[in-house]
Amino acid sequence: MTELGLTPYLCLGAFLFCCGLLCIATKRNAIGILMGVELVLNAANVNFVACARYVPQFALEGQVFALLVIVLAAGEAAVALAIILNFYNNHSTVDVDKADELKG
């Protein structure tokens, strides 16, 4: 393994993705869940940029979409935090298990 191929990057992306999912699935703190989402998005971005590097047709597209994802993630974080703060204002907690008023 003298040369660096695409596979290690994809594996790293997969690892980040699984960590993100695990984070979402195991945190009760709303902000912790938000962090998990950030991890998942980063996993996708790693794949985008890696593919941009290794597949010549995607050289531009991969970067463009990575950038779009970064901007989207920023927006998503802002809205999510606003919602969390709102929730915190109303319920005095950030424990998502308390947000079960809509359950069946």
């Binding site: 999912l21 699935a25 298990d97 079960d100 809509l102 069946g104």
Partner: peptide, 13 residues
């Protein structure tokens, strides 16, 4: 089915 709507995010995830 409504029982499955537990309101816990991690169940959904």
């Amino acid at each position: 089915l409504r029982v499955t709507q537990s309101g816990y995010i991690r169940r959904y995830v």
